[in-house]
């Protein structure tokens, strides 16, 4: 801060901080709140299909939707039972 601004007082330009914070929180909340409702159903269906071929614990299938830049990535994570 220069001596001039010490004397006259300078208000900080905080708008850019506000904008950055909002960008992050809004993107985050949009992703978590506006997530499609079909994910639980999709997970149930996947469990049903996969169980036809080998035993699988419903909790070992995780389905998630993530936003990466302009893309939405549907992530399906299946942990196969041990000892196969």
């Amino acid at each position: 801060m220069s001596w001039l601004s010490l004397i006259f007082g300078e208000k900080k330009a905080t708008a850019s901080v506000a904008k950055e914070r909002l960008q992050l929180i809004i993107a985050h909340e949009r992703a978590s709140l506006s997530g499609p409702d079909f994910l639980p159903d999709l997970q149930k269906d996947l469990v049903a299909v996969i169980s036809k071929y080998f035993p699988v614990n419903p909790d070992d299938i995780k389905v998630g939707l993530e936003k990466q830049g302009n893309y939405e990535v549907l992530e399906v994570n299946i942990v196969l039972p041990e000892g196969r």
Binding site: K11, K12, A13, T14, A15, S16, A18, K19, L22
Partner: peptide, 11 residues
């Protein structure tokens, strides 16, 4: 907004 203290309407 001009002084950077407030979000602009474009922001």
């Amino acid at each position: 907004a001009h002084d950077g203290e407030m979000l602009t309407y474009t922001d």
